[in-house]
Write a protein that binds this DNA or RNA. Structure first.
Lengths: 118, 118
DNA sequence: AAAACCTTGACACGGCCGTGGTAAGGTCAC
DNA sequence: GTGACCTTACCACGGCCGTGTCAAGGTTTT
């Protein structure tokens, strides 16, 4: 069975080794460990890392966003509270709303892209 | 019918006027506007602002988190993609995971509280 | 018409995020 | 047993978040 070490995994997924550790810390992709503590990425993890990358760029979301979604999914108390708040009266002027928070959420990415010189 | 102006609303909700504008920009609580453009907070908005505040402190989450939850709730494509990713193989070592991301998500707040001298 | 309040826009600032790099020290392969 | 690779821990840095404050200009009230 082939399990890639962190640098190999980095090469095949496009993440940097540094980011792989960061992603693990965020609780999103945690590879098995060897007896000595080496990270061992199996096929499942590699796939997960690739799809994670697509997910982030396709929807312009961040690791923190996914981490929060994870928390939402696993903490039903939190989910109920948040969904409940959102479901309550949806704040009067609905049009302004949609327009505004959309810009709010997108702005950072536009700035990032601009800064990245894309 | 009584509708409070931004400073009055700030007083009764505990938010600062600046934050009220920020919360609106984040698309979370958007008050009606007078003909001249003055924000007019009704009972519903005031209640919403108070519960929002409780929500944030009770679960140690941020405005951005709620904004993202809102996006998740209103963009089914996004929700399906994220939930799908999370639902897929839940990353091997489940224990490390839970432990780790929990710390990851909580650390910032601990630091915030510490910094705030609480 | 002046005082008091509102609006948007901008500057500021500490702190965290995403990222890279490096150091000190274990592990693996040959 | 030496070189290549891994691990954790820490410093650095640009950019955004949450927040305050101030300026320039309308509105409301008296």
């Amino acid at each position: 069975m082939e399990a890639l070490t962190i640098n190999e995994a980095a090469s095949t997924t496009g993440w940097s080794p540094r980011m792989l550790r960061y992603v693990e810390q965020a609780g999103l992709v945690a590879p098995e460990r060897s007896a000595a503590g080496y990270r061992l990425y199996g096929a499942a993890e590699l796939q997960r890392l690739r799809t994670l990358k697509e997910l982030l760029s396709e929807f312009e979301i961040t690791l923190s966003d996914v981490a929060f979604a994870r928390r939402l999914a696993s903490d039903s108390g939190l989910r109920r509270a948040v969904d409940g708040w959102l479901a309550a009266r949806p704040a009067r002027p609905e049009h302004v709303q949609a327009e505004d928070w959309l810009r709010f959420e997108q702005e950072k990415h536009e700035r990032l892209l601009a800064a990245a010189g894309a």
